[in-house]
Design a protein around this nucleic acid. Structure first.
Lengths: 228, 228
DNA sequence: CCTACCGATCGGTAGG
DNA sequence: CCTACCGATCGGTAGG
């Protein structure tokens, strides 16, 4: 197992190959989805033959799980770092939004769909926990700070709990990503925002909403009079 | 072509079969995605053999396009009806949210991904235009009313244009759908909201945000001082 | 609308 | 890490 002369790759080479596979597979899986990417496609993009992949990963599912896991760890580290900074809730959310808009190219919905429908139950469980620990937890600590400081509404005043806020934040972020891509291929409408501007708009809307506060009072809206 | 005795199905039977195929295919495509559903799976669920599908639809892509088209027309009719009512922006958005939460079981991200990566260019174009006409246009007319009345912020005051607002609305809606399903299988956290309650929460957050307005003033946030 | 069948492609294995 | 190859399944067609 220690590495033969020339035919067999050295330990370092094998490790580098593995990193190449992970990086390549990530790009393909995140763009096209699990089923739409074949093992041959990944291998060829890495300069390998298809069976060579099975030297590094047990099967296609294991490769996919490794890709997601690696991604969550990396993104999670960044979000945790930001969430611990000594800055306002608004500023930390803005920084998280910037990070995610710049560095996360994948579609969370697609990823979750693949995890749910293509992975086995044990892997689903594992990746679900990793997602919660790496993405939801750091974001929700920021929202908890806001709830504690009362700069955010609690559930009695039209707000949501910190966990739900974290999900909402991710959803709004992704939404913007997707809506610009809709628009690009639908009408090529002008949306020239940079990630920084986009992050600010998203956080602003999430915190303050679309309503003109001079005109409408949020408090009165909490008791809907179910008229159909 | 006028309909043979017993072997060949009558015109009416053929039409009913076609409706059955559309309904069945819709359920499967919307849940699992285009590639994950085989033509045999659809046929068996309809009580047919796989080649029989090709009597009603040219190929799998044409069937998928017909499913999406039918769906957009139906949903679009409901949204147009609501958008023309003589009620407040808030109330109409609430009703749209209720309708979509109750009647639209599909994942827009998945649908768009499939349209983008599995359909041919001409079908992409057609479905993209249908989506804009049936879903975005009715929603954006409601937001336009709000902008005209100045109950919604314009772009100079931290708002977005009516089209972007419509996309955002759909995104937030879908987000909530997805977040509850994340939570169901992640931690089984308590989120017992009905569609009606959920619709109200979503519209409220979209209009008024998560911030506690007694504490924070949205206006001052419009000039971000790019500190990293 | 069915039986029978095709070529292509898939994930994965044998064996070196 | 390659060559050679397998069984399964896919979308689609022929022909009645």
């Amino acid at each position: 197992m220690a590495g033969k002369q020339q035919r067999r790759p050295s330990h370092e080479e094998a490790e580098e190959t593995q990193r190449t596979i992970l990086r390549t597979a990530q790009k393909l899986f995140m763009e096209y989805g699990y089923r739409a990417v074949s093992t041959r496609q990944i291998a060829i993009a890495c300069g390998l033959t298809q069976p060579a992949l099975y030297h590094h990963f047990a099967d296609k599912k294991a490769l996919y799980a490794a890709v997601i896991q690696e991604n969550l760890v990396e993104t999670g580290a960044a979000l945790e770092r930001i969430s611990r900074r000594n800055e306002s809730v608004h500023e930390r959310l803005r920084q998280c939004a910037r990070y995610l808009l710049s560095n996360v190219q994948y579609n969370h919905s697609l990823m979750f769909h693949d995890i749910r429908y293509q992975m086995d139950a044990d892997v689903q469980q594992m990746l679900g926990e990793a997602f919660h620990a790496r993405m939801i937890t750091p974001l929700s600590t920021i929202f908890e700070d806001g709830l504690r400081q009362r700069t955010l509404r609690d559930q009695q005043h039209g707000g949501v709990d910190a966990i739900a806020a974290a999900y909402l934040f991710l959803n709004v972020l992704e939404r913007f990503l997707t809506s610009t891509s809709y628009r690009q291929y639908l009408t090529a409408s002008a949306t020239p925002a940079t990630s920084i501007e986009e992050a600010e708009v998203i956080v602003h809307i999430l915190l303050y909403g679309l309503a003109n506060v001079e005109r409408a009072c949020p408090a009165q809206m909490l008791d809907p009079e179910q008229t159909e």
